[in-house]
Design a protein around this nucleic acid. Structure first.
Lengths: 139, 139
DNA sequence: GTAGTTGCAAAGTGTTTGCAGGCAG
DNA sequence: CTGCCTGCAAACACTTTGCAACTAC
């Protein structure tokens, strides 16, 4: 089990700054939660973890920060459940298993998969990304 | 442009009955809207079209009916937009282009596509379906 | 200092629910 | 008749917004 993808706080600060985001205490904590291990959390879960950690934030700040991280390309939205958006700290191309019972996501590396026969986008449009979701459940 | 997939009202009634759903006027109208041509409408859009058609329904009935059609396997949910669920009258295996500018879905026939290298579902889980969404936009 | 950030509470969305009255079979 | 269906309005869960107070630089 690797665990090399949690940037130390100082790095997070630098990354935020590099994207024009002031590294406030709240943002650092939110980013720490989002980037700690490769998890897929909803805004609610992130808020809960941040508040459980002592350094708390408001709902508004969590949503603001997540939108900012999104704009900066530091996280990605994963849309698999109508009732909540998941934020994925892994921004390299990859896909997901979605455990419909538990509401949990698992990564599938993109280079494991080959897709053939993808049609061209409709005239006048360009491709903006492919999302493959494999829904799984207990038998 | 084919247009052979709008079952005449009498057929709709039979289909509903075959799935244990009483073919009430509201359900017939909702089903007519959903099944007319291969479109992907949100519950809201369906409600609007039903009400525009003279025979109106309430929000609750539209949602109830859509859930019933879903349970009966007569429509499928497509989840691509955090703000609304689309209902797809095409229940055979297929995928979608999603026009992120307009919020519109277009079908991609499944047999046009070949996916290789799909990993096995995690231990103890079975695959429940694959959704491939190609997000497209104007350049 | 000042522009950017936070937090609260209120407003907004899409969806769900409780329940009284209504209709199909 | 009787149980399933409908519709209204209120409740819900998640997300967004308005705005005054605050803080990083």
């Amino acid at each position: 089990m690797m665990n090399e993808d949690r940037p130390p706080p100082s790095d997070i600060a630098q990354v935020l700054r590099a994207h024009g985001l002031a590294p406030t205490l709240q943002r650092l904590e939110i980013a720490r939660v989002v980037f700690s291990r490769r998890r897929h959390l909803s805004a609610e879960q992130i808020l809960a973890e941040v508040n459980a950690s002592g350094r708390s934030s408001s709902k508004a700040t969590v949503y603001n920060t997540l939108k900012a991280l999104l704009r900066a390309g530091l996280v990605r939205e994963v849309i698999v459940d109508p009732s909540r958006v998941f934020f994925d700290p892994n921004v390299s191309p990859h896909h997901h298993f979605y455990d419909t019972d538990r509401g949990e996501l698992m990564d599938i590396e993109a280079d494991a998969i080959r897709v053939d026969g993808l049609p061209e986008p409709p005239a006048g449009m360009v491709q903006d990304g492919i999302d493959i979701v494999i829904r799984v459940r207990r038998p």
